[in-house]
């Protein structure tokens, strides 16, 4: 996803002279081709996230569209005030390309995991928060990013994530990957592919399960959430993120604000805790009960089957 996204930065920069790249200190040879072709629009600025965000703001104030890339947790925690004040308060078109969302950096431990990033970014006015499911969707997200007037946070998966077949991406719109049914899994990012596999397992067990993919976590597609709530007896949100403040919270907010009769709702995600173990992204997702078989079992248990 990172490679796709950064290749797209280069492509967008060819198409549009306003596009500039700002990196910190990540990935030997990253965007070498862009650096060679348009050195005046390529910046690799060192381990200084506060400065990078402020600098991107200044470039945006001069009419440029900066695409900023570094590790997700350093883009969200380290320079939060710069993101809030320099980008969101000024409503500037700066794109934060966040490497290693969720448990991607599992072996590196809690300093490198971005498991509350969506909650942090979602709290900021004017910020758009997107978590594509795979590299194909990333291409569409990047293309859609060019003309968004305000700032945008894009959460990357590990890379090589299985592709969820779909053809369209519209900012702020959800997509039905499996049609609505009595049970609906609502997910974002790389969890959507796992939800599709869970739905297939459930189908084999005689339970028809819809999958609603919500790549845009903010602004959330409230209409799609309400449509799901009307159709389902059981609504399950699934995210590679702490359960407080992310997709599940956003969905619950929509449901509660809408009032009326709610379906049963389960919010699945990571515990409100720092991780204790290392291993792989899949290991830690399994510990959190977020792998397809586990998701299917949770649904069965919730249905009493």
């Amino acid at each position: 996803m990172r490679k796709t996204s950064l290749d797209m930065v280069h492509e967008l920069a060819r198409r549009d002279k306003r596009v500039v790249f700002v990196g910190s200190d990540l990935g030997v040879g990253t965007l070498n081709a862009m650096k060679k072709e348009m050195p005046e629009r390529f910046f690799m600025e060192g381990v200084a996230e506060q400065n990078i965000i402020g600098m991107a703001a200044g470039l945006a104030m001069e009419g440029f569209i900066p695409y900023v890339n570094t590790i997700a947790t350093f883009l969200t925690r380290r320079c939060f005030e710069q993101v809030a004040v320099d980008l969101c308060l000024h409503k500037l078109p700066v794109r934060l390309l966040a490497s290693g969302g969720g448990m991607v950096y599992a072996p590196l431990g809690p300093t490198h995991l971005a498991i509350e990033d969506m909650a942090i970014m979602r709290a900021l006015p004017n910020m758009t928060v997107v978590a594509p499911s795979d590299a194909e969707e990333m291409k569409r997200v990047m293309a859609a990013s060019l003309d968004l007037p305000g700032p945008m946070y894009v959460r990357f998966g590990k890379g090589g994530d299985p592709v969820v077949p779909q053809t369209e991406f519209t900012l702020g719109r959800a997509a039905w990957i499996r049609p609505k049914a009595e049970v609906i899994l609502v997910s974002t990012g790389v969890m959507t592919e796992r939800c599709v596999r869970a739905a297939d397992l459930l189908k084999a067990a005689g339970i028809v399960c819809g999958v609603l993919h919500m790549p845009t976590v903010k602004p959330l597609d409230a209409q799609a959430v309400l449509e799901a709530a009307r159709a389902a007896k059981l609504l399950v949100t699934v995210e590679e993120h702490v359960v407080n403040g992310g997709l599940g919270t956003a969905v619950a907010e929509v449901l509660i604000d809408a009032g009326g009769v709610l379906p049963a709702v389960r919010r699945l995600g990571l515990a409100d805790a720092f991780t204790k173990n290392y291993g792989s992204q899949d290991d830690l997702l399994a510990e959190a009960g977020l792998q397809p078989e586990q998701l299917a079992d949770t649904v069965k248990a919730a249905l009493g089957r």
Partner: peptide, 30 residues
């Protein structure tokens, strides 16, 4: 955006010079 002539919203300290660096780079490109 509110006050004519004000280039950047400030008040949280330590932000202005980075914004100035970005502006100066942007002006250089232009």
């Amino acid at each position: 955006g509110k006050i004519p002539g004000v280039e950047a919203s400030t008040g949280a300290l330590g932000h202005g010079l980075s914004i100035g660096v970005g502006m100066a780079l942007g002006l250089r490109i232009k």
